[in-house]
């Protein structure tokens, strides 16, 4: 019963958020027959006059009621509201839409000699909405825009690429093992990524210290996507980590490993869960911990990275049973003053 209450509260929270933020689609549609007006020789400029001088798409280009009533006043007086409004009880003006393109109508109208049909090849009819232009095809007939498209200068026209479901163009192809390659692109040209992806998209994987659940859990219904940790990654993660010790650290802080290993109680001294194999402390053993540590220190760090309290330091200090950790020629390359400012040196010295 308690679980049901919690679930109900969660659903209520979603519903409250929906109510506060508003999700209503608005039922009314203004029924405007373009074809009939064209037959009546009504020019575009008659209803869309502001377009002629518009340098951006931020204005009001659709006619208000007063413009319609210049011809249809008698219909309104007769109460025939349904002639124009599909939902008379919720009748309203044209919905406002924020501009998503940089577009200068005034400049383009000069170029097309005021022939709107060069770009607007089809027009909407009542209950038959259509795209008012043919998208890229309408723009790319112009050589200038074709060049911009080829150069992927998307933001010349598009105000907010992140809101588009774009398929990446050839130059930033996401095909193949792009997951492993994407860091190269991001570090050298992060703005290219930001053109399409919000930071929250990156944080699905890169919020290593704050993440809610792994991305493959949240998107369990996307088996087509490549994830590093798909399905039973737990069982094979030690192999992946050994094959590329830096792979984990590219996304995860050492604390991520530590948190999980301690959470799972897989740590030294935890009796049956001690991960160390026989021969761990015996030099010459194939399982000797020194060899393993050189090979993949991050697996040690997962449990033992505790600074000056580290298990390594307790043995591997000068005079300790683990022997001198400094390689040959260490003293000739480092002096004592340097050591005073080095976080690793002060773990044992001073």
């Amino acid at each position: 019963m308690k679980y049901l209450l919690v679930l109900a509260a969660a659903v209520a929270a979603c519903a409250t958020a929906a109510t506060v933020l508003g999700t209503s689609a608005g039922g009314d549609e203004i029924l405007f027959p373009h074809a009939r007006h064209k037959q009546a020789n009504v020019d575009c400029i008659t209803c869309h006059e502001p377009v002629w001088d518009a340098k951006t798409l931020a204005g009001d280009f659709l006619p208000n009621e007063a413009k319609c009533l210049e011809c249809h006043k008698a219909k309104k007086a007769a109460g025939e509201c349904a002639m124009c409004h599909s939902d008379v009880r919720h009748a309203g003006p044209w919905p406002k839409r924020p501009p998503r393109l940089n577009f200068d109508h005034a400049a383009h109208l000069d170029r097309v000699k005021e022939d709107c049909s060069v770009c607007h090849k089809q027009l909407a009819e009542p209950r038959k909405p259509v795209m008012i232009t043919a998208g890229h095809a309408a723009c790319l007939t112009c050589h200038n825009h074709s060049k911009q498209y080829d150069d992927a200068q998307c933001t010349t026209c598009h105000l907010d690429l992140a809101s588009y479901p774009l398929v990446p163009v050839t130059e930033v192809s996401h095909q193949g093992d792009f997951l492993r390659r994407h860091g190269n692109v991001a570090r050298a040209s992060g703005k290219s990524c930001a053109a399409c992806h919000e930071q929250n998209f990156c944080l699905d994987c890169h919020a290593e210290k704050t993440v809610m659940v792994p991305v493959e859990t949240r998107l369990v219904d996307r088996p087509d996507r490549r994830f590093i940790h798909r399905q039973d990654f737990l069982g094979r993660h030690s192999i992946d980590a050994r094959s590329d010790p830096a792979l984990c650290q590219r996304c995860h802080a050492v604390s991520s490993c530590e948190t999980c290993h301690q959470h799972e109680r897989i740590s030294a001294g935890a009796s049956a869960r001690n991960p160390h194999p026989p021969g761990w402390v015996l030099p010459g053993s194939p399982q000797f911990h020194g060899t393993e540590a050189r090979r993949n220190i991050s697996s040690c760090a997962a449990c033992h990275d505790q600074g000056e309290q580290s298990n390594c330091v307790s043995c591997h200090k000068v005079g300790g049973i683990g022997g001198d950790p400094h390689p040959a020629g260490f003293r000739t390359r480092h002096d004592i003053n340097e050591a005073r400012n080095d976080g690793r040196c002060v773990a044992c010295h001073f």
Partner: peptide, 18 residues
């Protein structure tokens, strides 16, 4: 890559890492 340099230099494990 130098895997030890993906760890903080303040971590004692960067001394022992590959």
């Amino acid at each position: 890559t130098a895997p030890d340099l993906f760890l903080d230099r303040t971590s004692i494990f960067s001394v022992f890492s590959e």
